[in-house]
Design a binder for these strands. Structure first.
Length: 527
DNA sequence: TCGCCTAGCACGTTTGAAATGG
DNA sequence: ACCATTTCAAACGTGCTAGGCG
């Protein structure tokens, strides 16, 4: 069972279009030619306004939220748990959509965990290079998306600012909000052109604070109890994990803890000897930035500071690059050992032909196409209607990237004054790193507007938009994401954002995350 | 001294190739 | 020869801990 009916109703989302602060039905804004041009499209697209998105395992998310969700971030990348899964309905079965997610700062604070609560500990660090995670099945037909759960469980979080794998980069001890974007592919199986429509969905119960080690033992216990990979840390039946003394909860030292301590005290020397077998391993990434020249902060112009509705203020730049053979490793000095030591499912493998693409990455085609969609009870990658998989299995560019300064906030669509991020240089379009034209596998990109009011009185919010043309000249606004027409095989794709603006509407009050969800004693800060 | 971060560890799960049998 | 099932090892994901670092 995905959800009970009540929660499903709560999370129902009727797509709407936002243009210049007005709300309109999506279909009225949609360029009919866009739908008509989409292969397999049948008639007017009613999918957007009828679309409904339900967060999977909402109750579990609520449990975490009430305890103050924490997500571990590591240099190598760590999955989220609970993982971000949604059930989508109401799509046009034959229209192609691209599903993606990103994680944006929830506010401009840094936090610390004191006395069992998260407290504001100062101003946030400069925003990391924003990245998007494109579901590896994208683009796919509505029938495909609706058939099973759409899972983003392979998304990984990292605190490595130079991460070459395309994992989403976050700052530790900061609060973040995941978002889901549904983009209607245009006639080129792309989006970002003027005909591209998109919607954004935010589930506030998925907000979390990134940490390098768990602060709240309640979260630790929730993870251990619910994550099968942490089963090894579960105690035997009846093993109480938390004891209450004078109304306060104290963690109980588990058998594992005792064992670990014994191992540490008696076998530390041996462990060190074993650990010393691979010296220098962690040094690989530390030199990455200098080699590639990746700008850590490359968000766009001062538009980010504009209090106006963010939709027309944020731009994303996406690039897609051809998959090459393993020789691409040669372009990474000293990278290969690290790459090989990591998961087979590297979102990004290497930069490609041009130094300009230094922050472009590629995913592994084979593994990224592993089933990320689930039926209610079982995975059934083999049951997928191949007719619906209009893309080749080599499709493999499941990451985009954006860089965004701190978002401007809005409440129910009313923009809130954003706060500046002086640490981030704000050049305009100069941030666009265009791939060399000579490379036919390079996917070009252009700014896209997004408007995403995150704050809502409900536990979740959404926003929907038609493609607001950057200009009428489509040639100057190539799709952000597109499949080469006539290409039967998708290349490995890479989306590397060069620029975006703080168009994300997030309240500066943490209450947005607790409304309707929090209980007394919520660990979320009250400020 | 403190708080945060990292590497290495053990454990359980997942995955996929190889082996086996019908 | 083909297909389905089973087995098993490697890879992966996880939380825990000591030690490093600023």
């Amino acid at each position: 069972m995905l959800q009970d009916k009540a929660s499903a109703v709560t999370d129902e989302w009727m797509g709407q279009v936002r243009t210049g602060g007005e709300t309109e039905l999506f279909q009225e804004q949609l360029d009919p030619s866009a739908a008509a041009g989409v292969p397999g499209s049948s008639g007017p697209d009613q999918s957007i306004e009828n679309m409904k998105v339900v967060l999977h395992e909402k109750e579990l998310w609520k449990k975490f939220h009430e305890a103050g969700t924490e997500m571990i971030i590591t240099k190598a990348g760590r999955r989220m748990f609970p993982s971000f899964k949604v059930k989508v309905t109401g799509m046009n079965p034959k229209t192609k959509y691209i599903l993606l997610t990103d994680i944006v700062p929830a506010d401009d604070h840094r936090y610390k965990f004191c006395e069992n609560k998260w407290l504001v500990a100062g101003k946030a660090e400069p925003a990391m290079p924003g990245r998007l995670y494109v579901h590896p099945d994208s683009p796919a037909t509505g029938a495909h998306w609706m058939r099973q759960l759409v899972s983003f469980q392979k998304l990984k979080l990292t605190n490595n600012h130079l991460d070459p794998f395309g994992h989403i980069i976050l700052n530790s001890m900061h609060k973040y909000q995941p978002r889901l974007h549904i983009v209607k592919a245009d006639e080129n199986n792309a989006f970002g052109s003027k005909n591209t429509a998109y919607c954004t969905r935010v589930f506030h119960e998925t907000a979390f604070i990134s940490v390098t080690s768990y602060q709240n033992h309640k979260i630790t216990q929730l993870k251990i109890e619910n994550n099968p990979f942490a089963k090894g840390f579960r105690g035997s039946e009846g093993d109480l994990r938390v004891s209450r003394i004078d109304g306060k909860e104290y963690p109980v030292i588990s058998k594992n803890t005792v064992r670990q301590r014994m191992i540490s005290s008696h076998g530390h020397l041996a462990a060190k000897l074993r650990g010393g077998a691979f010296p220098g391993h962690a040094q690989v990434l530390s030199s990455y930035q200098n080699e590639t020249g990746i700008p850590l902060s490359n968000s766009g112009s001062s538009d980010a500071l504009s209090p106006t509705f963010p939709q027309s203020k944020e731009s994303l730049m996406y690039h897609c690059f051809k998959h090459r053979d393993n020789t691409r490793y040669l372009e990474f000095d000293c990278k290969r050992p690290y790459l090989e030591s990591s998961s087979k499912e590297h979102y990004f493998r290497s930069p490609y032909e041009s130094p300009l693409l230094s922050h472009a990455y590629c995913t592994d085609a084979i593994t990224s196409r592993e089933a990320c969609m689930y039926n209610g009870m079982e995975t059934e990658s083999g049951a997928v209607d191949k007719d619906d998989l209009t893309h080749s299995p080599s499709l493999n560019c499941n990451m985009w990237a954006t860089v965004q300064s701190y978002p401007c906030y809005s409440v129910d669509g009313v923009p809130h004054q954003p706060f500046p991020n002086p640490a981030i240089p704000q050049p305009a379009s100069s941030m666009v790193s265009r791939p060399p034209q000579a490379d036919p596998w390079v996917y070009n990109s252009a700014p896209i507007q997004r408007g995403v009011p995150l704050l809502s009185p409900s536990s979740s919010s959404s926003s929907c938009s038609p493609a607001v043309p950057v200009s009428n000249d489509t040639s100057s606004n190539p799709p952000l994401y597109h499949k080469k027409p006539g290409s039967s095989v998708w290349p490995h794709r890479d989306f590397s954002a060069c620029s975006s603006q703080g168009a994300l509407s997030i309240p500066d009050s943490p209450y947005q995350y607790t409304a309707g969800l929090s209980s007394t004693g919520s660990p979320w800060p009250d400020s």
